[in-house]
């Protein structure tokens, strides 16, 4: 009988205790959620990438620091002999012109101008004697 009463009292005490709500005044829920969100978003990719790039920077810096300076090599250049300069052969187009004789006429005319000035030029053909030359005939005269 007394055991049953004791049991009932214990059960009543348990339910009365459960009714009590623990104090949580100082627990800032917003701060907790914010910090928990940050913690959950913190992955391993960025720290790993930072670690790798930092170590690569350090290694490259050390290699640059301990690497010997590149040696300067002085090369003796032989003096240029003017006689050894070979004449430049005329281009194939020019050679073709020379073959046709036009080039020799041009050179002759150039020499006349250099020696006597414009007076050395042969008299131009009179406008009355000959008809004006068209582009085709001018090209053919070359």
């Amino acid at each position: 009988m007394s055991e049953r009463l004791e049991e009932r009292e214990i059960t009543a005490l348990e339910s009365a205790l459960r009714e009590l709500r623990p104090q949580t005044e100082a627990l800032d829920r917003a701060v907790l959620m914010y910090r928990a969100g940050r913690a959950s978003a913190r992955g391993w990719i960025w720290p790993l990438a930072t670690l790798l790039s930092t170590s690569a920077t350090l290694v490259l810096g050390i290699v640059l620091w301990i690497r010997p300076a590149p040696a300067i090599v002085y090369v003796a250049v032989p003096p240029v002999d003017n006689e050894t300069i070979l004449p430049v052969p005329p281009s194939p187009l020019l050679a073709n012109e020379l073959e046709r004789g036009a080039w020799s006429r041009y050179v002759h005319l150039q020499e006349q101008v250099l020696l006597h000035g414009l007076d050395g030029l042969p008299p131009p053909p009179s406008a009355t004697d000959e008809p004006p030359l068209d582009a085709g005939s001018l090209l053919n005269s070359l």
Partner: peptide, 10 residues
């Protein structure tokens, strides 16, 4: 308690 929940979130 806050630290415990942060650890849980991580």
């Amino acid at each position: 308690v806050q630290e415990a929940f942060i650890k849980l979130a991580a």
